[in-house]
Deep mutational scan, measured.
Amino acid sequence: DYYKILGIPSGANEDEIKKAYRKMALKYHPDKNKEPNAEEKFKEIAEAYDVLSDPKKRGLYD
C-alpha cells in the first residue's frame, strides 16, 4: 500500500505527501543508510510518491 509505505493517511493532501516523501527518502537514501534493504525501500518510496503525487495516477490507484 503506497500510503502505508509513506506513513500517511489515504486522505493526505499534496503537501503531506511531499513532506512524507522527503522524510522517508532521506531516511532510506542508499548514500545515507547502509542497511542492505535501503536501496529497495528507497525505490518503493519513490514509486509510491510517483503515483500519489500525480492526481491521475492517484485516482486510478484509489
Rank of each mutant, 00 (worst) to 15 (best):
I45K: 02
I5T: 08
N37S: 12
K41Y: 13
K56F: 03
S53Q: 03
G7K: 05
D62S: 05
S10R: 09
D15N: 02
K18E: 14
L26E: 08
L52Y: 00
K41V: 09
E14A: 08
D1E: 11
L26G: 12
L52N: 01
Y61V: 14
E39D: 15
K32H: 02
A25F: 12
F42V: 08
K19P: 01
L6H: 00
N33H: 11
D15T: 05
E35I: 08
P55S: 11
E44H: 15
K19G: 12
Y2F: 14
K57S: 07
L26F: 15
Y21M: 07
Y61C: 14
V51R: 04
E40F: 13
A48I: 01
D31T: 13
K41M: 09
D54G: 04
H29C: 13
K41R: 08
K23I: 15
K41D: 13
D31I: 12
M24I: 09
G7P: 00
D62T: 09
E47S: 05
K43G: 14
A25L: 13
P36L: 11
S10K: 06
D31N: 13
I5D: 03
Y2T: 03
E16Y: 03
K18T: 14
A48K: 03
A48Q: 01
A38V: 11
K19Q: 14
D62R: 03
G59V: 08
E40H: 14
N33G: 15
P9W: 03
A38D: 14
G59E: 10
P55F: 10
I45Q: 00
L26P: 14
K27V: 10
I5K: 07
Y28L: 14
K18G: 13
N13C: 11
D15V: 04
K19R: 07
E40A: 14
Y21K: 02
E44A: 10
V51W: 02
K19D: 15
E47T: 05
I8Y: 00
D50G: 06
H29A: 05
I17A: 02
A38K: 13
E40K: 14
A38S: 10
I45T: 06
V51E: 05
I5M: 08
G11T: 05
P30A: 14
L60Q: 15
I45M: 06
D50S: 08
M24F: 03
G7E: 07
A46Q: 02
D31F: 10
A20Q: 08
P55D: 08
G7I: 00
P30Y: 07
S53D: 01
Y2R: 01
Y61G: 13
Y21I: 00
K41I: 09
N33W: 09
E16P: 00
E47D: 00
A25P: 03
N37K: 12
Y21N: 03
K23L: 13
E40W: 11
D15H: 05
